[in-house]
Design a protein around this nucleic acid. Structure first.
Lengths: 160, 160
DNA sequence: CGATAATAGTAAGACATCTAACCATAGGAG
DNA sequence: CTCCTATGGTTAGATGTCTTACTATTATCG
């Protein structure tokens, strides 16, 4: 008996597990991204925030192609997103000294403070919803997620 | 010491947990969707498959607005997606008998066999990557995911 | 009953993303 | 050194999704 039809469980003996797992993952990702989107000012997409977040956490001064690879989007998409962020003054790009083909992406002061405010806003938004018991659930769940994420990451096509 | 910088842990005492959790979720969702996309024939988007899957699992003969709500997309998006699926002969729509404003969406025979093949292809693709230990990890993780998914689902804005 | 609000679906325009094609530079093989 | 391939970045066109505005029908309320 499938108590909750949304889980997709019951479709098969073992395969149903994989299906149900990714199904839940997909829904959570969509809902959390929608929540994040509401916190961001108009014209800043969650994916733009993800780029900022990456630069703050792992350091800036990297070429677009490396950011694209980390974010799992194409070079063309990164070109577009960086143009948006640069127009907004949140990042700046300078030519690379070692490779004339390449640019390097840097956060501006405005970009860093924008990121800090967005983080604060997101924490307020999620804090309004996520209580201590769910926090505990998440904490216990993270190692498993990391394991699966690494598994998929190792098996993804190069160039994506 | 943040062993894995990708987790985003270490950004705060408790808040980092929420952040790391949703970060992993987002990455897994993206990678798994990319994997699914490779299995589908050209021109069929993962979101289209999700609609088919919904209709197979929870039954067809429903109006677009209900499918849109279940898939968490807008009515306009559903109009577009259903047009694609109908052009491909995977679904068909008939006017509702009870409500003259409304249509009802039905799977065609071609649609059902398409779905079955897609499921089989997805299982092959995931089976090539996911082994027994990860399957076990997923199994243990699902209840937690369901809990978080329901939490977010209950707290989302109506009309999305 | 008749006016107003709510709901189902669509259309138009914007934006993010993708693929395919292109240019410029780098790096190797001969 | 020269040619060929690989790599970083951009451009153009297609597709998916969103918001806003609109039409048609239904429901509610006076």
């Amino acid at each position: 008996m499938t108590a909750d039809p949304d889980t997709g469980a019951g479709a098969g003996p073992e395969r149903g597990t994989v299906f149900a797992f990714f199904n839940e993952i997909g829904i959570i990702a969509q809902l959390s991204q929608a929540l994040l989107g509401k916190v961001l000012p108009d014209g800043v997409h969650p994916s733009h925030f993800a780029i900022m977040n990456h630069l703050v956490r792992l350091g800036d001064g990297k070429p677009p192609v490396r950011i694209a690879s980390a974010m799992q989007v194409t070079k063309a998409t990164m070109t577009h997103s960086l143009a948006v962020l640069e127009r907004r003054g949140l990042i700046e790009t300078r030519p690379s000294a070692e490779d004339a083909r390449s640019k390097l992406v840097y956060l501006t002061v405005a970009g860093r403070s924008f990121h800090a405010e967005a983080i604060a806003g997101a924490n307020r938004a999620f804090g309004r919803i996520v209580g201590e018991p769910e926090l505990q659930t998440m904490r216990e769940c993270i190692p498993a997620l990391v394991e699966i994420r690494k598994l998929l990451d190792e098996n993804r096509d190069p160039g994506e």
